[in-house]
Design a protein around this nucleic acid. Structure first.
Lengths: 196, 196
DNA sequence: AATGAAAGGATTAAGCC
DNA sequence: GGCTTAATCCTTTCATT
């Protein structure tokens, strides 16, 4: 795959500002034709760089329960399923996994009893302990600073440039800076699979 | 202003799933014509319920520094400016204010020294203490559960229905369940202004 | 990646309840 | 006020170079 160039960054920024902006109008800003922008956007979607087009909803004006931030300690074998469950649950908006293997998330709870809600949420998952913090305000900044964007190698974290490689493994897209990193990653991945 | 009805909720959900979906196609799902959907979306934008159309970018694949979650204790008089500063800073993506007056945020730090980065970020603001947690993965679910949506009164937090009022004060849109709440809010607001 | 033709969507205006 | 339909204009898509 091609590296993300300046033009791609600019397109990402413009779409982040207004996702419904016509491709032809974006094209005028980046000196490209409408179809050319369309092609690039399609590529960005296929590379899983654009996850999707969405709206920024002012949730503060909408009743959606009590906003809470939950920090849960979870056994490492349950982290993955717990994460999935949180993600798919209504009201959960942001899910973080810390490097220590804890699961943190922001949610809006309609139940009157958070403990009850948590029990229902993580039905068959064992949670050692968790803390609940009430949130007063929450803001999300979709703004995209073009300069901060570049692809990173899934193996070594270096910047991926024109020489890079892209592969899809189990439906997920990964980028690599060089064939060695790709090979190493595939190796690790396979061993992981076999281990399971 | 009209209450947000079931149809508006459905439109919000559909746009959250795909903000570029044609209005006419949305119209088919909610049994409305294209122009009618367009009108409703325009109203949702004018009421500041839709902040904007944007993209969900897979930041994990883009180099944007080390993902961290920072929990900072801040004196109550500095909370507002600190919040603003965080929000406007590059790399800061989610900002939470806890009910205890702490400032929490998720950011991607490019600097090699987080402490240095923090000092630069909050230049003239006094921060009592903060903790930094490394984040492995972060996911955001823009999905909107229609059922959980309703306007809330800015004064009493009750649901705003058809009888509600909407006003713009200093460029911000506020919704109220009744004229009394509007009056009370305006009163409080004015006293606040005069106090400053 | 540009072009041009064809298909499809957005917006406007007129009219209805 | 909010809806629909029809006309117009604009945008996207696709085939071609």
């Amino acid at each position: 795959m091609r590296d993300l160039d300046e033009t791609d960054m600019k397109i990402l920024s413009l779409l982040a500002e207004d996702a419904r902006r016509p491709f032809s109008s974006i094209g005028e800003e980046v000196d490209l034709s409408g179809p050319a922008v369309s092609d690039r956007v399609k590529r960005l979607e296929e590379s899983d760089i654009i996850n999707g087009f969405t709206i920024d909803v002012n949730r503060a004006q909408l009743r959606a329960g009590v906003p809470v931030f939950i920090q849960a300690e979870i056994g490492s074998e349950s982290l993955e399923p717990a994460c999935k469950q949180a993600r798919e649950s209504d009201g959960v908006e942001h899910v973080f996994t810390t490097s220590e293997g804890d699961l943190w998330f922001y949610a809006r709870v309609e139940a009157h009893n958070v403990r009850q809600w948590m029990n229902g949420l993580f039905d068959e998952i064992n949670i050692a302990d968790y803390t609940v913090t009430l949130i007063d305000a929450m803001e999300w900044t979709p703004s995209v600073d073009g300069a901060e964007f570049a692809l990173t190698c899934a193996e070594c974290n270096n910047t991926v440039d024109t020489e890079g490689e892209t592969t899809r493994i189990d439906g997920e897209v990964y980028h690599f800076c060089c064939p060695s990193c790709l090979a190493r990653f595939e190796d690790r991945y396979q061993r992981l699979e076999e281990g399971v």
